[in-house]
Design a binder for these strands. Sequence first.
DNA 1: TATATTGTTACACC
DNA 2: TGGTGTAACAATAT
Length: 305
Amino acid sequence: MPELPEVETVTKELDRKLKGKKIARVEVRLSKIVSFGPGTVSNIRKSSQRAASDFRKKLVGLKVRSVSRRAKLLIFDLSGPYSLLVHLKMTGQLIYLKAKEKKRKIKMFNRVDAPELLMPCKHTHVIVVFTDGSKLFYNDIRQFGYLKLVADKQLSYVKELLEFGPEPLSRDFTLKVFTDILKRRPNMPLKQLLIDPRLIAGIGNIYSDEILFRARILPTKRAKILKPKEILSLYKAIPYILKKGIKAKGSSVGDFIRTDGSWGSMGKYHYVYMRAKLPCKICGTIIKSIKFNGRTGSYCPSCQR
DNA sequence: TATATTGTTACACC
DNA sequence: TGGTGTAACAATAT
């Protein structure tokens, strides 16, 4: 499940690998994945055939200037001037193949018995071929993700770019900003507050669980009853855990893989995520899980208060 | 075959 | 108006 650290990992890898490359050819194997223009993805998906054709034609000949990230959204800055927005959602993967490398087998899941599939595979929905022969594959098992091409002058109309909260690793994310967010949602359980992208960008299920454990605060706790000391430890835990995730090149507990098909190692350091019914690494208490609007969260009932 | 899975949006209600 | 809660949606693996 790509969240901020996973998307950041992919961003850095692709920025390094794709910078300056020119797009020679684009193959869209599943048209609903791609769209063109600033409209909402669901609107565009209705006319996906035409959009796919526009998408392909516009991309050919453009150069990659840089790859960056906002929340969990990848932004390819292209010549033209266009930008390609890529959201991996649950199971999206971007796999890069060097020019000389003709074949690559990838394990799509971090499981011993996962099948090794030759790229492109049945889950490859878009292929971008560069003029030097290198390739970028977009794989997505659930097909929830998307690639959206937007003219730069229309970027300010892209709804999903406008509504994000502050980047938790930026200088703008001060203690005051965080305290104000808590004030705006006094009754929201902290678990839900942390994963709401309109409040803070980029945090999902994995990292919200780990952040709350790091701060030793229960996911069910509401913002209004936090003591100043708890607010501070929660505030500090956010960049601490996200940076740890980036350093480990992401968490491959689910389907996340890096652009070369390798796995991130953050999963080894999880204290609670995906550890329900296992003993807490600190105190041995059995980790519990709880549902928030259909989302599962895990916590240690002894360490977290 | 039913269910779990997630980020995000839509919408109803207060 | 805006906070809050719930449902819906995409498609697949198990």
